[in-house]
Design a protein around this nucleic acid. Structure first.
Lengths: 186, 186
DNA sequence: CTCTACATGTAATAAGTTACATGATTGC
DNA sequence: GCAATCATGTAACTTATTACATGTAGAG
Protein backbone atom coordinates (compact mmCIF):
# COMPACT_ATOMS: atom_id res chain seq x y z
CA UNK A 1 0.00 0.00 0.00
CA UNK A 2 1.33 3.43 -0.80
CA UNK A 3 2.74 5.55 1.97
CA UNK A 4 0.08 8.23 1.80
CA UNK A 5 -2.66 5.69 2.41
CA UNK A 6 -0.70 4.11 5.23
CA UNK A 7 -0.35 7.49 6.91
CA UNK A 8 -4.02 8.31 6.51
CA UNK A 9 -5.02 4.89 7.81
CA UNK A 10 -2.91 5.20 10.94
CA UNK A 11 -4.18 8.71 11.52
CA UNK A 12 -7.76 7.49 11.17
CA UNK A 13 -7.17 5.53 14.37
CA UNK A 14 -5.51 8.30 16.34
CA UNK A 15 -3.42 11.41 15.91
CA UNK A 16 0.25 10.70 15.50
CA UNK A 17 3.62 12.04 14.47
CA UNK A 18 5.54 10.78 11.47
CA UNK A 19 7.85 9.02 13.84
CA UNK A 20 4.99 7.19 15.49
CA UNK A 21 3.47 6.19 12.16
CA UNK A 22 6.64 4.40 11.26
CA UNK A 23 6.52 2.55 14.57
CA UNK A 24 3.09 1.08 13.89
CA UNK A 25 4.33 -0.99 10.99
CA UNK A 26 7.87 -1.47 12.22
CA UNK A 27 7.05 -3.25 15.43
CA UNK A 28 3.81 -4.60 16.74
CA UNK A 29 1.48 -7.22 15.31
CA UNK A 30 1.21 -5.63 11.88
CA UNK A 31 4.85 -5.25 11.01
CA UNK A 32 4.91 -8.40 8.94
CA UNK A 33 3.01 -7.14 5.94
CA UNK A 34 3.89 -3.50 5.55
CA UNK A 35 7.03 -1.45 5.59
CA UNK A 36 7.67 2.24 5.56
CA UNK A 37 10.69 4.47 5.86
CA UNK A 38 11.04 8.06 7.01
CA UNK A 39 12.11 9.02 3.53
CA UNK A 40 8.63 8.26 2.29
CA UNK A 41 6.55 9.13 5.34
CA UNK A 42 7.58 12.74 5.81
CA UNK A 43 7.11 13.75 2.18
CA UNK A 44 3.79 11.91 2.16
CA UNK A 45 2.59 13.77 5.23
CA UNK A 46 3.61 17.11 3.77
CA UNK A 47 1.80 16.35 0.55
CA UNK A 48 -1.26 15.27 2.49
CA UNK A 49 -1.09 18.52 4.42
CA UNK A 50 -1.01 20.55 1.20
CA UNK A 51 -3.99 18.59 -0.07
CA UNK A 52 -5.92 19.24 3.12
CA UNK A 53 -6.13 15.58 4.03
CA UNK A 54 -4.45 16.10 7.38
CA UNK A 55 -3.93 18.98 9.78
CA UNK A 56 -0.95 19.51 11.99
CA UNK A 57 -0.32 20.79 15.50
CA UNK A 58 3.25 21.65 16.22
CA UNK A 59 4.43 21.37 19.75
CA UNK A 60 7.94 22.61 20.29
CA UNK A 61 10.22 20.60 22.50
CA UNK A 62 13.40 21.56 24.23
CA UNK A 63 16.30 20.67 22.00
CA UNK A 64 14.60 18.16 19.76
CA UNK A 65 12.88 19.30 16.59
CA UNK A 66 9.32 20.23 17.41
CA UNK A 67 6.87 17.37 17.41
CA UNK A 68 4.37 17.61 14.59
CA UNK A 69 1.20 15.87 15.57
CA UNK A 70 -0.90 15.09 12.56
CA UNK A 71 -4.65 14.60 12.58
CA UNK A 72 -6.82 13.37 9.73
CA UNK A 73 -9.43 15.74 8.31
CA UNK A 74 -12.86 14.93 6.94
CA UNK A 75 -11.43 15.17 3.44
CA UNK A 76 -8.65 12.82 4.45
CA UNK A 77 -11.14 10.31 5.78
CA UNK A 78 -13.04 10.46 2.50
CA UNK A 79 -9.85 10.01 0.50
CA UNK A 80 -8.89 7.04 2.65
CA UNK A 81 -12.26 5.36 2.19
CA UNK A 82 -12.10 5.95 -1.54
CA UNK A 83 -8.71 4.33 -1.74
CA UNK A 84 -9.73 1.36 0.36
CA UNK A 85 -12.74 0.79 -1.83
CA UNK A 86 -10.89 1.05 -5.09
CA UNK A 87 -7.53 -0.61 -4.69
CA UNK A 88 -7.56 -4.28 -5.35
CA UNK A 89 -3.92 -5.01 -5.96
CA UNK A 90 -3.44 -8.76 -6.12
CA UNK A 91 -1.54 -10.17 -3.18
CA UNK A 92 2.01 -11.21 -3.45
CA UNK A 93 3.87 -13.97 -1.72
CA UNK A 94 7.14 -12.40 -2.74
CA UNK A 95 9.85 -14.14 -0.88
CA UNK A 96 13.29 -14.49 -2.30
CA UNK A 97 13.31 -17.82 -0.54
CA UNK A 98 11.11 -19.35 -3.22
CA UNK A 99 13.27 -17.95 -5.95
CA UNK A 100 16.36 -19.40 -4.36
CA UNK A 101 14.60 -22.69 -3.81
CA UNK A 102 13.78 -22.85 -7.49
CA UNK A 103 17.46 -22.61 -8.27
CA UNK A 104 18.75 -24.52 -5.28
CA UNK A 105 20.66 -26.90 -7.52
CA UNK A 106 23.03 -24.02 -8.19
CA UNK A 107 23.63 -23.57 -4.49
CA UNK A 108 24.52 -27.12 -3.62
CA UNK A 109 23.12 -29.14 -0.72
CA UNK A 110 25.06 -27.47 2.09
CA UNK A 111 24.12 -23.91 1.18
CA UNK A 112 20.58 -25.04 0.44
CA UNK A 113 20.22 -26.63 3.83
CA UNK A 114 21.64 -23.54 5.47
CA UNK A 115 19.17 -21.39 3.61
CA UNK A 116 16.25 -23.60 4.59
CA UNK A 117 17.35 -23.68 8.22
CA UNK A 118 17.63 -19.92 8.24
CA UNK A 119 14.19 -19.53 6.78
CA UNK A 120 12.74 -21.91 9.34
CA UNK A 121 14.47 -19.98 12.11
CA UNK A 122 12.96 -16.74 10.84
CA UNK A 123 9.53 -18.31 10.65
CA UNK A 124 9.86 -19.73 14.14
CA UNK A 125 10.89 -16.38 15.48
CA UNK A 126 7.78 -14.86 14.03
CA UNK A 127 5.45 -17.64 15.07
CA UNK A 128 6.64 -18.06 18.64
CA UNK A 129 6.65 -14.39 19.39
CA UNK A 130 3.10 -13.40 20.20
CA UNK A 131 4.53 -10.65 22.41
CA UNK A 132 5.46 -8.86 19.22
CA UNK A 133 2.52 -6.60 19.69
CA UNK A 134 3.85 -4.93 22.79
CA UNK A 135 1.99 -6.96 25.37
CA UNK A 136 -1.49 -5.94 24.30
CA UNK A 137 -2.39 -9.04 22.37
CA UNK A 138 -5.55 -9.73 24.29
CA UNK A 139 -6.77 -6.22 23.73
CA UNK A 140 -6.79 -6.53 19.94
CA UNK A 141 -10.06 -5.77 18.28
CA UNK A 142 -11.55 -8.61 16.21
CA UNK A 143 -10.36 -7.24 12.90
CA UNK A 144 -6.89 -6.69 14.35
CA UNK A 145 -6.93 -10.23 15.67
CA UNK A 146 -7.90 -11.35 12.18
CA UNK A 147 -4.89 -9.71 10.62
CA UNK A 148 -2.55 -10.88 13.33
CA UNK A 149 -3.93 -14.41 13.17
CA UNK A 150 -3.63 -14.39 9.40
CA UNK A 151 0.09 -13.88 9.67
CA UNK A 152 0.35 -16.58 12.25
CA UNK A 153 -1.62 -19.05 10.14
CA UNK A 154 0.34 -18.35 7.00
CA UNK A 155 3.69 -18.52 8.66
CA UNK A 156 2.72 -21.75 10.36
CA UNK A 157 1.63 -23.18 7.04
CA UNK A 158 4.95 -22.16 5.51
CA UNK A 159 6.88 -23.81 8.30
CA UNK A 160 4.91 -27.01 8.04
CA UNK A 161 5.27 -27.13 4.29
CA UNK A 162 8.99 -26.47 4.37
CA UNK A 163 9.60 -29.05 7.07
CA UNK A 164 7.66 -31.70 5.19
CA UNK A 165 9.06 -30.98 1.76
CA UNK A 166 12.58 -29.70 2.21
CA UNK A 167 13.96 -32.98 0.95
CA UNK A 168 12.72 -32.02 -2.51
CA UNK A 169 15.41 -29.37 -2.61
CA UNK A 170 18.20 -31.87 -2.08
CA UNK A 171 19.56 -34.60 -4.30
CA UNK A 172 17.70 -37.86 -3.79
CA UNK A 173 20.83 -39.66 -2.66
CA UNK A 174 19.90 -40.00 0.95
CA UNK A 175 21.78 -38.05 3.55
CA UNK A 176 24.31 -36.09 1.51
CA UNK A 177 22.73 -32.82 2.45
CA UNK A 178 22.68 -33.60 6.15
CA UNK A 179 26.35 -34.45 6.27
CA UNK A 180 29.03 -31.88 5.79
CA UNK A 181 30.13 -32.59 2.28
CA UNK A 182 33.22 -31.39 0.52
CA UNK A 183 31.40 -28.33 -0.70
CA UNK A 184 33.09 -25.10 0.24
CA UNK A 185 31.20 -22.93 2.67
CA UNK A 186 30.67 -19.42 1.40
CA UNK B 1 14.35 -10.51 -6.84
CA UNK B 2 15.86 -7.98 -9.18
CA UNK B 3 15.35 -8.33 -12.88
CA UNK B 4 18.97 -9.03 -13.72
CA UNK B 5 19.04 -12.02 -11.41
CA UNK B 6 15.75 -13.26 -12.78
CA UNK B 7 17.12 -13.11 -16.30
CA UNK B 8 20.32 -14.89 -15.38
CA UNK B 9 18.40 -17.54 -13.49
CA UNK B 10 16.11 -18.30 -16.40
CA UNK B 11 19.04 -18.36 -18.78
CA UNK B 12 20.85 -20.79 -16.50
CA UNK B 13 18.14 -23.30 -17.36
CA UNK B 14 18.12 -22.70 -21.09
CA UNK B 15 18.81 -20.05 -23.68
CA UNK B 16 15.94 -17.68 -24.19
CA UNK B 17 14.81 -14.37 -25.61
CA UNK B 18 13.65 -11.49 -23.48
CA UNK B 19 10.14 -12.25 -24.56
CA UNK B 20 10.42 -15.83 -23.35
CA UNK B 21 11.92 -14.78 -20.02
CA UNK B 22 8.87 -12.72 -19.31
CA UNK B 23 6.67 -15.69 -20.09
CA UNK B 24 8.32 -17.88 -17.46
CA UNK B 25 7.09 -15.72 -14.62
CA UNK B 26 3.94 -14.49 -16.26
CA UNK B 27 2.28 -17.81 -16.78
CA UNK B 28 3.19 -21.23 -15.57
CA UNK B 29 3.59 -22.58 -12.07
CA UNK B 30 5.95 -19.85 -10.90
CA UNK B 31 3.98 -16.80 -11.86
CA UNK B 32 2.60 -16.31 -8.39
CA UNK B 33 5.72 -15.03 -6.68
CA UNK B 34 7.58 -13.02 -9.26
CA UNK B 35 6.71 -10.37 -11.78
CA UNK B 36 8.64 -8.77 -14.54
CA UNK B 37 7.88 -6.36 -17.33
CA UNK B 38 9.58 -5.76 -20.65
CA UNK B 39 10.58 -2.34 -19.47
CA UNK B 40 12.92 -3.92 -16.96
CA UNK B 41 13.92 -7.09 -18.80
CA UNK B 42 15.36 -5.58 -21.95
CA UNK B 43 17.52 -3.01 -20.19
CA UNK B 44 18.66 -5.69 -17.75
CA UNK B 45 19.67 -8.00 -20.59
CA UNK B 46 21.59 -5.22 -22.32
CA UNK B 47 23.42 -4.38 -19.12
CA UNK B 48 24.20 -8.04 -18.56
CA UNK B 49 25.53 -8.20 -22.11
CA UNK B 50 27.83 -5.24 -21.47
CA UNK B 51 29.06 -6.89 -18.31
CA UNK B 52 29.78 -10.12 -20.13
CA UNK B 53 27.26 -12.10 -18.11
CA UNK B 54 25.34 -13.20 -21.18
CA UNK B 55 26.02 -13.60 -24.86
CA UNK B 56 23.57 -13.09 -27.65
CA UNK B 57 22.79 -14.71 -30.98
CA UNK B 58 20.62 -12.69 -33.25
CA UNK B 59 18.45 -14.49 -35.70
CA UNK B 60 16.62 -12.23 -38.10
CA UNK B 61 13.04 -12.99 -38.88
CA UNK B 62 10.87 -11.88 -41.71
CA UNK B 63 9.01 -8.79 -40.66
CA UNK B 64 9.33 -9.12 -36.92
CA UNK B 65 12.31 -7.62 -35.14
CA UNK B 66 15.11 -10.16 -35.10
CA UNK B 67 14.99 -12.63 -32.26
CA UNK B 68 17.82 -12.15 -29.81
CA UNK B 69 18.58 -15.43 -28.14
CA UNK B 70 20.54 -14.91 -24.97
CA UNK B 71 22.80 -17.47 -23.35
CA UNK B 72 24.46 -17.25 -19.97
CA UNK B 73 28.25 -17.13 -19.82
CA UNK B 74 30.56 -18.62 -17.21
CA UNK B 75 30.88 -15.19 -15.64
CA UNK B 76 27.11 -14.90 -15.60
CA UNK B 77 26.78 -18.23 -13.88
CA UNK B 78 29.26 -17.10 -11.23
CA UNK B 79 27.43 -13.84 -10.73
CA UNK B 80 24.15 -15.69 -10.37
CA UNK B 81 25.55 -18.08 -7.77
CA UNK B 82 27.04 -15.17 -5.85
CA UNK B 83 23.72 -13.41 -5.76
CA UNK B 84 21.82 -16.51 -4.71
CA UNK B 85 24.27 -17.10 -1.88
CA UNK B 86 24.22 -13.55 -0.61
CA UNK B 87 20.69 -12.25 -0.88
CA UNK B 88 18.57 -13.05 2.10
CA UNK B 89 15.80 -10.52 1.75
CA UNK B 90 13.12 -11.33 4.31
CA UNK B 91 9.93 -12.60 2.78
CA UNK B 92 6.90 -10.48 2.47
CA UNK B 93 3.25 -11.41 2.66
CA UNK B 94 2.36 -8.09 1.13
CA UNK B 95 -1.22 -8.20 0.25
CA UNK B 96 -3.37 -5.12 0.24
CA UNK B 97 -6.07 -7.43 1.43
CA UNK B 98 -4.63 -7.48 4.94
CA UNK B 99 -4.31 -3.76 4.98
CA UNK B 100 -7.91 -3.35 3.96
CA UNK B 101 -8.98 -5.94 6.48
CA UNK B 102 -7.27 -3.96 9.20
CA UNK B 103 -9.41 -0.98 8.31
CA UNK B 104 -12.53 -2.84 7.30
CA UNK B 105 -14.62 -0.84 9.76
CA UNK B 106 -14.16 2.08 7.38
CA UNK B 107 -15.55 0.05 4.51
CA UNK B 108 -18.74 -1.14 6.11
CA UNK B 109 -20.04 -4.71 6.11
CA UNK B 110 -21.24 -4.86 2.51
CA UNK B 111 -18.00 -3.67 0.96
CA UNK B 112 -16.04 -5.80 3.39
CA UNK B 113 -17.97 -8.90 2.44
CA UNK B 114 -17.50 -8.11 -1.21
CA UNK B 115 -13.78 -7.71 -0.68
CA UNK B 116 -13.54 -10.99 1.19
CA UNK B 117 -15.56 -12.80 -1.45
CA UNK B 118 -13.36 -11.41 -4.15
CA UNK B 119 -10.23 -12.49 -2.35
CA UNK B 120 -11.62 -15.97 -1.87
CA UNK B 121 -12.50 -16.15 -5.54
CA UNK B 122 -8.97 -15.19 -6.47
CA UNK B 123 -7.53 -17.76 -4.13
CA UNK B 124 -9.85 -20.43 -5.47
CA UNK B 125 -8.86 -19.62 -8.99
CA UNK B 126 -5.26 -20.11 -8.09
CA UNK B 127 -5.78 -23.24 -6.03
CA UNK B 128 -8.07 -25.07 -8.43
CA UNK B 129 -5.96 -24.41 -11.44
CA UNK B 130 -3.16 -26.92 -11.48
CA UNK B 131 -3.08 -26.67 -15.25
CA UNK B 132 -1.47 -23.28 -14.81
CA UNK B 133 1.84 -24.78 -15.71
CA UNK B 134 0.95 -25.51 -19.28
CA UNK B 135 0.08 -29.15 -18.89
CA UNK B 136 3.48 -30.31 -17.74
CA UNK B 137 2.73 -30.56 -14.06
CA UNK B 138 3.84 -34.13 -13.75
CA UNK B 139 7.13 -33.34 -15.37
CA UNK B 140 8.20 -30.85 -12.75
CA UNK B 141 11.50 -31.53 -11.09
CA UNK B 142 11.39 -32.00 -7.31
CA UNK B 143 12.56 -28.46 -6.52
CA UNK B 144 10.04 -27.09 -9.00
CA UNK B 145 7.35 -29.18 -7.39
CA UNK B 146 8.46 -27.76 -4.05
CA UNK B 147 7.97 -24.19 -5.21
CA UNK B 148 4.69 -24.96 -6.93
CA UNK B 149 3.43 -26.89 -3.91
CA UNK B 150 4.49 -24.08 -1.61
CA UNK B 151 2.17 -21.70 -3.40
CA UNK B 152 -0.62 -24.21 -3.26
CA UNK B 153 -0.14 -24.84 0.46
CA UNK B 154 0.02 -21.16 1.33
CA UNK B 155 -2.96 -20.22 -0.76
CA UNK B 156 -4.95 -23.06 0.73
CA UNK B 157 -3.99 -21.94 4.22
CA UNK B 158 -5.11 -18.41 3.37
CA UNK B 159 -8.43 -19.64 2.09
CA UNK B 160 -9.06 -21.77 5.13
CA UNK B 161 -8.13 -19.00 7.49
CA UNK B 162 -10.28 -16.44 5.73
CA UNK B 163 -13.27 -18.76 5.59
CA UNK B 164 -12.99 -19.58 9.26
CA UNK B 165 -12.36 -16.07 10.50
CA UNK B 166 -14.12 -13.70 8.15
CA UNK B 167 -16.74 -13.03 10.78
CA UNK B 168 -14.10 -11.10 12.72
CA UNK B 169 -14.23 -8.43 10.04
CA UNK B 170 -17.94 -7.84 10.51
CA UNK B 171 -19.91 -6.36 13.35
CA UNK B 172 -20.89 -8.99 15.91
CA UNK B 173 -24.60 -8.39 15.35
CA UNK B 174 -25.39 -11.58 13.56
CA UNK B 175 -26.27 -11.54 9.89
CA UNK B 176 -26.10 -7.87 9.02
CA UNK B 177 -23.22 -8.45 6.67
CA UNK B 178 -24.90 -11.30 4.84
CA UNK B 179 -28.02 -9.34 4.10
CA UNK B 180 -28.08 -6.41 1.76
CA UNK B 181 -28.15 -3.54 4.16
CA UNK B 182 -28.97 0.07 3.48
CA UNK B 183 -25.36 0.81 2.73
CA UNK B 184 -24.79 2.23 -0.72
CA UNK B 185 -22.86 0.02 -3.07
CA UNK B 186 -19.81 1.74 -4.47
C1' DC C 1 -11.42 -5.58 -39.19
C1' DT C 2 -9.75 -5.97 -34.84
C1' DC C 3 -7.45 -8.38 -31.35
C1' DT C 4 -3.85 -11.29 -29.86
C1' DA C 5 0.71 -13.28 -30.11
C1' DC C 6 5.18 -12.47 -31.49
C1' DA C 7 9.42 -9.34 -30.69
C1' DT C 8 12.36 -5.43 -29.23
C1' DG C 9 13.16 -1.24 -27.35
C1' DT C 10 12.85 3.81 -25.25
C1' DA C 11 11.12 7.59 -22.44
C1' DA C 12 8.33 9.56 -19.03
C1' DT C 13 6.91 8.81 -14.68
C1' DA C 14 6.34 7.11 -10.15
C1' DA C 15 7.79 5.51 -5.82
C1' DG C 16 10.62 4.13 -2.54
C1' DT C 17 15.37 3.29 -0.15
C1' DT C 18 19.64 4.87 1.72
C1' DA C 19 22.42 8.03 3.46
C1' DC C 20 23.06 12.32 5.24
C1' DA C 21 22.25 16.58 8.25
C1' DT C 22 20.88 18.26 12.84
C1' DG C 23 20.60 17.80 17.80
C1' DA C 24 19.31 16.69 22.84
C1' DT C 25 18.83 13.11 26.24
C1' DT C 26 19.27 8.66 28.43
C1' DG C 27 21.31 4.19 29.30
C1' DC C 28 25.52 1.21 29.13
C1' DG D 1 32.39 8.25 25.61
C1' DC D 2 29.23 5.74 22.47
C1' DA D 3 25.17 4.02 20.99
C1' DA D 4 20.23 4.27 20.94
C1' DT D 5 15.84 6.76 21.18
C1' DC D 6 13.42 10.56 19.94
C1' DA D 7 12.31 13.76 15.90
C1' DT D 8 12.23 15.91 11.34
C1' DG D 9 13.66 16.50 6.91
C1' DT D 10 16.35 16.55 2.16
C1' DA D 11 18.94 14.76 -1.76
C1' DA D 12 20.93 11.28 -4.42
C1' DC D 13 20.12 7.08 -6.16
C1' DT D 14 17.97 2.93 -7.68
C1' DT D 15 14.37 0.48 -9.63
C1' DA D 16 10.43 -0.66 -11.80
C1' DT D 17 5.91 0.48 -14.21
C1' DT D 18 3.42 2.44 -17.93
C1' DA D 19 2.78 3.90 -22.22
C1' DC D 20 4.45 4.43 -26.53
C1' DA D 21 6.72 3.24 -31.14
C1' DT D 22 7.26 -0.29 -34.77
C1' DG D 23 5.66 -4.15 -37.53
C1' DT D 24 3.88 -9.02 -39.21
C1' DA D 25 0.71 -12.83 -39.14
C1' DG D 26 -3.02 -15.48 -37.83
C1' DA D 27 -7.60 -16.12 -35.42
C1' DG D 28 -12.18 -14.85 -34.79
Amino acid sequence: MDTKTICLAVLSQSDATGYEIKGVFEEGPFSYFQDVSFGSIYPALNRALEDGLVSVTELPQAGRPGKKIYAITAAGRDALCDTLRKETAPDRVTCDFLFKALFSHLLGPVATNAMVDQRLAELNEHIDRPEGCGGGLEQLEPREAFVFGFGHAIHSAMRTYIEENRDKLLPADGDIGRTISTEAAD
